[in-house]
Design a binder for these strands. Sequence first.
DNA 1: CTTCTTGTTACTGA
DNA 2: ATCAGTAACAAGAA
Length: 285
Amino acid sequence: MPELPEVETIRRDLNKKVVQKRIKKIDVRKAKLARNGKDNFLESLTNKSFSKIDRRGKLLIFVISGTGRFLLTHLKMTGQLIYQKGNKKTAGGHGWPEIGKLPNSYSHIIFTFSDNSRLFFNDLRQFGYMEVVDEKQLSEVLARFGIEPLTKDFTEKNFAKALQGRKTAIKTALLNQQIVAGIGNIYADEVCFAAGIKCQRKVDSLTKTEIKKLFSTVKRIMKLAVEKRGTTFNNYRDADGNTGNFVGYLNVYHRDGKKCKKCSSIIKKTKLGGRGTHYCPSCQK
DNA sequence: CTTCTTGTTACTGA
DNA sequence: ATCAGTAACAAGAA
């Protein structure tokens, strides 16, 4: 499940690999994942290049040089962007699904650059997409995102303001991309644990001190997870096909039935807003 | 076999 | 406006 740290890792990797390279060929194997329609998609990108890659929340934004257009890429749950150099036969990865040999049966869109290197858009469950948009469409899309946790806009004041008046559970608020951008199910649970706050607590029940704690925790965990190149629970891989290193730092996610690392209570699991929710009944108030 | 998994959007009903 | 709940999407894990 690529969330902000995973998507940011891929963004940084690809910025070093594909920028300024001419796109020689695109193989759209599953037309559904190219939202503009295959022909339009091919025409918008073939023989163009990317000048840089940005990110907003979990959305990657490839800037297409000299066209005023952008390639949006969302990986949703099982999307991968794997880059391979021209003569390399393997990506050095391992695990599930096997990405050592590419393309595999989940490689739905394949970019070939002028140096014969390739970028594979793999997606086991096919929820992800790629879409070419113009500047107007881009600004409409970007308007729906809340504060970016790793920018200077993310201040305690802005965070409190975004939460103000909300009556929903704090975890649901953290998952809401219009409040804070980029947090998904794993980090929402981890943030609530690290802040010592029950996921089910209503936002309007939180004290100023608790909001402050949540704010600093979001910032700290997002930063740490980016440093560790994200969490590979099963499917996530970086642009080289390697796993992330944050799994060992997880305190609650998918640890139900195991002992809390802080207090040795048994981690519980429940459902909140239709999502699996993990927490320590003793550490979180 | 059934149930669960998740990011996002769309919809219903309160 | 705001929110809760749910279906849809797909394919594999448990």
